[in-house]
Design a protein around this nucleic acid. Sequence first.
DNA 1: ATTATTTAAGAGTTTAATGTCTTTAATATA
DNA 2: TATATTAAAGACATTAAACTCTTAAATAAT
Lengths: 150, 150
Amino acid sequence: MLLSKSSVYGIRASLYLAAHNRGQYNSIREVSEELDISFHFLTKILQNLTADNLMESYKGPNGGIRLSAKGRKATLLDVVIAIDGPDLFVECALGLPGCGSSDPCPLHNNWAMVREGIKDMLARTTLEEMAKEGKANKFRITPDGHFSWQ
Amino acid sequence: MLLSKSSVYGIRASLYLAAHNRGQYNSIREVSEELDISFHFLTKILQNLTADNLMESYKGPNGGIRLSAKGRKATLLDVVIAIDGPDLFVECALGLPGCGSSDPCPLHNNWAMVREGIKDMLARTTLEEMAKEGKANKFRITPDGHFSWQ
DNA sequence: ATTATTTAAGAGTTTAATGTCTTTAATATA
DNA sequence: TATATTAAAGACATTAAACTCTTAAATAAT
């Protein structure tokens, strides 16, 4: 898979929260059940996003998690980098440490272009905007297709 | 990383053999030492390529491994699919089973294009041709940069 | 104050990828 | 036929990703 499961879970949760954002917190339990993701595992993943100020969390009754203002303007690229780091967008396609424009591997130039394509795919638009598109097009973000964008 | 280590090792070994192909067999030991890849691990990986008739192996003294005629005309895409299967080029970017053009995830259309870019990068030309380019451009295929294309 | 609800933190467990080691089978050469 | 050389096969070990479970900390409401 292109992205780790952690990144994919982070993406799906971010889209969920972008769609269900009315200023209040959504409980992680609710998000995990709606999206069919293990609760504790999702909690860990979302901690990366709050640490990066893409989300805000609050403990206690009626607590939960929500996108921050920064998060609403962020892209899936920001989400992926917050969770898995920038390696995918920096490393040589063959993982060769010394590969660079002055001493390239056979894939170097092509990979530079493909990598930009991946970045563009993830950074095309904001989470806020993607939630609108998701609602308009009823995009699938669950395995079983059961999900209400509202 | 985009590709598994197994696929990357398979790619590097394929390029090595394409460059050192004079009809005779190269021992896997030699390949593994030249490319700094664990010998036994590389052996396992190359078995996928011989099983797919991209390579031919021969036991005994002066035995070893070499590209087949099919292998010389094959591309890195064939190598990757022989080793890791076609999942990367088939699966939804979010790993959602039901995702398809009739019920797409938010990345479906963009991912379809990016995926073609990855395939094009890997299927641009044959191993035979890549070996020529490698020799002409002295492309890096080892971590330490030490490698003779001959 | 006490209790219930929620995230945070951290210690496990499981699974798959990666890597190592030993034994077996094939084959050439002496 | 005996020996050396090679890949194949398979058991085992290590590592990292993925997942589970328990306890702690914060907070609201009673």
